[in-house]
Design a protein around this nucleic acid. Structure first.
Length: 152
DNA sequence: GCCAACGTTGGC
DNA sequence: GCCAACGTTGGC
């Protein structure tokens, strides 16, 4: 099973929202970046995902979710009412993909970005690199373990 | 609120 | 195909 990390603003969709969602399930839609979309498309059912809180007071890894439905056309791209609407996308040739994710657990303590930056073995994780804006990224098995050990 | 870094768009 | 202009992300 592959491992991943996704960013979200907790005001929009944080680990608490997963914990409160019916069955703990939230569709991961609205991704509008090609590189991030390509990673989304590679996700498989059962893959585990770190949920990272960005653009807020306490930034860092807050919890773990799992992929329960692999990539399907993101419905928000067809919805003119949606902020994620994309007029250039068609149902025959959808541009954007979504997956469904399910709550696994909230970490006992958030792992702050600052700490992730200082940890050995995470140097290649795009998350800790300056100016990185990628919102969906792969996490290597070793990186995953290093972070898990830190999470307790 | 600021601003650096980045991705995308569009003129040429 | 280049690249300037623009909009967005996201840490600080």
């Amino acid at each position: 099973m592959a491992k991943w990390l996704v960013k979200s603003e907790p005001a929009e969709c944080g680990i608490e929202d997963f914990a409160k969602a019916p069955d703990g399930v939230i569709p991961w839609d609205g991704v509008r970046n090609y590189q991030a979309r390509n990673f989304l498309a590679q996700m498989a059912e059962g893959d585990e995902v770190f949920l990272y809180h960005s653009s807020c007071k306490h930034i860092g890894i807050a919890g773990i979710v799992t992929v329960i439905r692999s990539a399907y056309p993101d419905p928000t791209q067809f919805d003119p009412e949606s902020p994620y609407y994309d007029g250039k996308s068609t149902r025959e040739k959808p541009r954007w993909q979504a997956v469904d994710m399910k709550y696994v657990r909230t970490l006992p303590g958030l792992i702050p970005l600052e700490e992730l930056k200082s940890m050995a073995g995470l140097e290649d994780l795009p998350l800790v690199r300056k100016g990185n804006r990628l919102s969906v990224m792969p996490v290597g098995e070793e990186e995953w373990q290093i972070i898990l050990n830190q999470a307790g």
